[in-house]
Simulated scan of single mutants.
Amino acid sequence: MWRSIASNALTLFIVVLILAFGLIAWGRQAFTGPGPLTQAICFKVDKGASLSQVSRGLEAEGAVSDARIFRIGADYSQVGNSLKFGSYLIQPQSSMGDVLAALTAGGQSTCGREVNFRISVATAEVVLRELDPATNRYVEVVKFDPAKDAAPTAYLDAAQASDIRWRITLAEGVTSWQVVDSLKRADFLAGNIDKLPAEGTLSPDSYEVEKGFDRPTLIADMEARQAKTLAELWATRAEGLPYATPKEALVMASIVEKETGIPTERKQVASVFINRLAKGMKLQTDPTVIYGVTKGEGVLGRGLRQSELKRETPWNTYVINGLPPTPIANPGRLSIEAALNPDTTPFLYFVADGSGGHAFAETLAQHNENVVKWRAIEAAKGEEAAVGVQE
């Protein structure tokens, strides 16, 4: 009898053990296998939300098949207390493990709404946009210039949300004055900038910030990034360049930046100026003259006058020899690289060619022919031509 009871108990234990292993295997498969989502969604984790609340929300939105298995997996992975508030993009068929990783990895939210304050040469605009999960592309909600427009209601409402992301983007070629003047109007920043950063020392880049971020700290970050870029590229510079210091290379890079917006042209443009310096020729580039007129405080908004081309300023390269004393804008990495590793060319001149690029020339005669073509193009448009570098 006891032998029968023991046999039955052993059989029952084995059955229970098999069921337990089967349940574990099923749970593991449910946690690591493809999830039920058929299209991407943005899932919001509220500040202070518990694992239980998040798991139920994921199940309600169809991101996970079973909230209990998600919680068990999170606890087993020891990240159940590591949820990061924000909005996160959950891709179709993401496993529970993938979802858990997205919600606990840290860093910025991966979807939802974003405010991007874009500072360019001509404008400074606040852009509120929202990620469309289906296309994984941002859709513009509203855009305004804080210097001219009142903040729209959509922006004011969004600015109160806890999961909104904030970004500052500097375009290549902006001046330090333009950056500081624009940052003063960013109502989501704090702190006063008491000193204008030296021209050329701010890195055109994208900066993730938080609401209430300190302006001087942001400027320091911009300066640190530019210094790092300049030091890195200076260390790999070509031989025989006409720069005694990294600052002189930065001056050249700023001129290249203002002369062309085409990445593939930058090294050619740099070669023209380096060739002119090597021959003792004046640089004769209009952007430096413009900087002498404006000091970087805004856009000139008109063509240069003959009197301005002849006026002696430290930046008028039609008058002075060599490089001007300071950069004329904040150049991006590609322009700094072009100044430090230019193409080897025989060119001494260039002028716009009507396609957005430039026609380069080795001789003044060739250049004059290119200028005639450019003036004809501009005459057809009813505009006054700028002729680039010339004799």
Rank of each mutant, 00 (worst) to 15 (best):
V293G: 06
K267N: 08
A102K: 13
V180L: 09
Q91Y: 11
A158Y: 07
G280Q: 09
L202E: 00
Y88P: 05
M1E: 09
V141F: 00
S4H: 11
E239M: 04
R237A: 09
D163M: 05
Q53L: 04
R225A: 06
L300Y: 03
I336W: 07
S254G: 10
H358Q: 10
S52M: 09
P325C: 06
A124F: 08
Q366C: 02
F144G: 08
A150N: 15
P325L: 09
G191S: 10
W234G: 12
A161V: 06
T169D: 06
K44T: 13
V54S: 07
G356D: 04
S87N: 12
T294V: 11
G173M: 04
L17W: 12
T169R: 13
S4I: 08
V99Q: 06
A134R: 15
A150H: 12
T313H: 12
M96G: 10
E384M: 07
V142Y: 03
A235E: 02
I119D: 00
A40G: 14
S271Y: 09
V299E: 15
V54D: 01
M222N: 08
A30Q: 14
P324V: 02
G388W: 12
P327Y: 15
K44G: 04
G322S: 06
L10Y: 03
G356C: 09
A9D: 01
V126G: 14
L202W: 07
E114A: 07
R266C: 07
E378T: 12
E265N: 06
P325I: 05
T363A: 13
A122F: 14
C111L: 00
E61K: 13
G292K: 13
S4M: 06
T236N: 04
E384Q: 15
N368I: 07
T264S: 14
Q390F: 10
K228I: 04
A101W: 10
L250M: 11
W177Y: 15
W166P: 07
T169W: 13
S109E: 07
A101C: 00
D187G: 09
W177I: 08
R225K: 15
Q108K: 13
R167P: 00
D187Q: 12
L19T: 06
M252A: 13
R185A: 04
N8R: 11
A380W: 05
R311L: 06
F188I: 01
A231Q: 14
A154S: 14
K84P: 01
M1A: 14
V126P: 00
D187C: 08
N368F: 02
K84C: 05
Y349F: 15
D157I: 14
A74S: 13
G354Q: 06
L131F: 01
A352Q: 03
V126Y: 05
G388K: 04
L241N: 04
G280F: 10
G80L: 08
D157H: 11
K310D: 15
E59H: 04
F13M: 15
Q390L: 12
K373F: 00
E297V: 15
Y138R: 03
L12Y: 10
L37I: 02
E362G: 05
F21D: 00
A249K: 11
S206L: 15
A361N: 11
R375K: 15
T175V: 11
G280E: 11
A359L: 06
K247E: 15
N136K: 14
F188C: 01
L250T: 00
H367V: 03
R276F: 06
V269M: 11
R375H: 10
L12W: 12
E239V: 05
A60T: 10
A158G: 05
P324A: 09
S82W: 02
E172I: 08
A379G: 01
A67L: 01
E172M: 14
